[in-house]
């Protein structure tokens, strides 16, 4: 108790930027959830409605976020580290491109034909692979071809999963 007073005497300042950001993050997520669930009825105890648990969880999340933000003013913690956007863009971008091309996609004016694993496989390996700092293009291209062939044989033929290979060319 007395210790906390000593803290207060030193004045309120952010002692753990990471915890403060984490607390704000939780509060924002909870706010988003509450906004999305705003029309869901709470129901009664006897017949709990679809909104009861999402809203309760969101409120608790927000409460924990507030606590986290407050403790960041009291306890010393870690600094906030920067983002490495290179990885985020290439690795996650590669995966998204895979999803867009494997069966094709249709978002508004953007039409992507159904390209299949023969195209999507190399795309994900090449795009994601370029996130590496010690990138070697020749090696990666060969690797992309080998991996795609291996995956086609493994998933399509050995395991028999219904994944399209190249519908525009092979019809499967």
């Amino acid at each position: 108790m007395s210790l906390n007073k000593i803290e207060q005497a030193r004045g309120l300042r952010v002692r753990s930027p990471q915890d403060l950001a984490a607390g704000i993050f939780m509060i924002l997520l909870a706010a988003l959830a509450l906004f999305l669930a705003r029309d869901l009825p709470l129901g009664t105890l006897r017949q709990i409605g679809p909104g009861m648990l999402p809203k309760s969880f969101a409120v608790i999340c927000a409460g924990l976020g507030v606590m986290l933000a407050l403790t960041s003013l009291v306890y010393k913690g870690e600094q906030l580290q920067g983002f490495s956007w290179r990885g985020v863009i290439f690795v996650l971008g590669g995966a998204v491109l895979f999803g867009l091309t494997i069966r094709g996609f249709d978002i508004g004016p953007l039409k992507v034909p159904q390209l299949g694993l023969v195209v999507s496989g190399p795309i994900v390996v090449l795009v994601a692979g370029s996130a590496a700092t010690d990138l070697r293009w020749k090696e990666l291209i060969i690797f992309a071809i080998v991996m795609t062939t291996f995956c086609a044989l493994l998933f399509k033929y050995a395991l028999g999963l219904p994944i399209p290979l190249a519908p525009w060319l092979l019809g499967i």
Partner: peptide, 8 residues
């Protein structure tokens, strides 16, 4: 550099 594209 090859492992993570394979994982992906």
């Amino acid at each position: 550099r090859l492992m993570f594209p394979a994982i992906l």
